[in-house]
Simulated assay, not measured.
Amino acid sequence: MKAVPKVNTDGLYLEDVLVDDAFSGVVPFYTENLPELPTKPGQPEPEATPEDVQPGDTPGQDPVIAGYIVGIPVPPGLFHPRFDLTAWRQYQDSIQAAEAAYQEAMSAWNSTPEEERGGRPVLNIPPMPALWIEGLTPQEIERITAPQPQALSELDRLGTELVARELEMLEIRRQNETLGAQVVGLELRLLSLEGNPSEGGETFV
């Protein structure tokens, strides 16, 4: 068994699935296209539609392609891989065209007298293009790769709160010292007034 990518109908990667080691190519998987029947009070709800149903599993129903199982590994470096289904179909068409040309050339070669045949035709399969591409836009990639503010750890958070409390205590202490100095000044002023009664007043006998 081996793990291969599973994509949706747009080619976007969904998950890996296990298949036989001999699996290759691109194979669709299906979901049932069941009509929605109205339910009456007291009747049970219709059963949920299975996600993966192969054609012919349900007679009389038209299966709908839900995605594809791809036997081509995903290359590294893609944020959200997307399998280019259009390029894959074009590649299959080019292989079929190459095979058809080879069969035609072989038929002509076999029908030619041996002394006039020349070299045996060769099947030229076109090279496979890059079928996995980036599924995200540059803006989406920039957004997810932008530096994110680091969340404070519990220790950092407690340290920050402790520093804030110490600063509050220092401010309260400063205010208390200022008020204490004002009180001392008032007491000294009162003592000064008590020790020096006002002069110039008249004394009555």
Score class of each variant (00 low, 15 high):
44 P>W: 02
88 W>Y: 08
8 N>C: 06
74 V>G: 04
85 L>N: 02
92 Q>I: 03
31 T>Y: 07
96 Q>V: 04
36 E>Y: 09
57 D>Y: 13
189 R>V: 10
115 E>A: 10
112 T>H: 03
162 L>T: 00
192 S>V: 01
37 L>R: 10
138 P>G: 03
181 A>Y: 04
121 P>H: 00
145 T>N: 03
109 W>L: 03
65 I>F: 14
42 G>A: 02
54 Q>E: 10
99 E>H: 07
171 E>D: 10
34 L>Q: 04
166 E>W: 10
132 W>R: 02
50 P>G: 06
99 E>M: 11
100 A>D: 15
123 L>Q: 11
42 G>R: 08
122 V>L: 14
43 Q>P: 07
1 M>F: 07
86 T>F: 11
165 R>T: 06
32 E>I: 06
75 P>G: 02
178 T>S: 03
137 T>N: 11
204 F>I: 09
61 Q>A: 10
138 P>N: 07
108 A>K: 15
91 Y>C: 09
178 T>A: 10
155 L>R: 06
23 F>A: 10
26 V>F: 06
104 E>Y: 04
48 A>G: 06
73 P>C: 05
155 L>N: 12
156 D>V: 08
151 A>E: 14
101 A>R: 13
179 L>Y: 13
19 V>Y: 00
107 S>I: 05
156 D>G: 14
164 A>F: 15
121 P>W: 02
27 V>N: 11
10 D>W: 09
40 K>T: 12
165 R>M: 14
166 E>I: 15
13 Y>V: 05
138 P>R: 12
4 V>H: 00
120 R>W: 08
84 D>M: 08
31 T>D: 09
95 I>H: 02
135 G>Q: 07
163 V>I: 09
125 I>R: 13
186 L>C: 08
203 T>C: 05
157 R>Q: 13
198 S>H: 14
180 G>V: 00
86 T>Q: 14
204 F>M: 12
119 G>L: 05
197 P>I: 02
55 P>H: 00
99 E>N: 07
192 S>K: 08
30 Y>V: 05
87 A>L: 00
78 L>W: 08
28 P>E: 05
12 L>V: 12
201 G>E: 14
183 V>K: 15
46 P>N: 05
130 A>F: 11
201 G>A: 14
155 L>C: 13
36 E>K: 09
76 P>D: 07
201 G>K: 12
181 A>L: 02
202 E>S: 13
6 K>Y: 01
25 G>V: 04
6 K>G: 01
118 G>C: 13
35 P>D: 10
181 A>E: 08
144 I>T: 05
58 T>W: 11
170 L>I: 08
128 M>P: 01
72 I>F: 08
83 F>C: 00
68 Y>M: 01
163 V>M: 15
39 T>P: 06
104 E>T: 11
173 R>L: 08
179 L>R: 11
67 G>C: 00
45 E>A: 15
11 G>H: 03
132 W>Y: 14
103 Q>C: 00
103 Q>S: 03
74 V>L: 11
78 L>Y: 04
80 H>L: 10
111 S>W: 15
60 G>I: 01
30 Y>S: 04
16 D>N: 05
28 P>I: 07
188 L>D: 07
47 E>W: 13
123 L>I: 11
141 I>K: 15
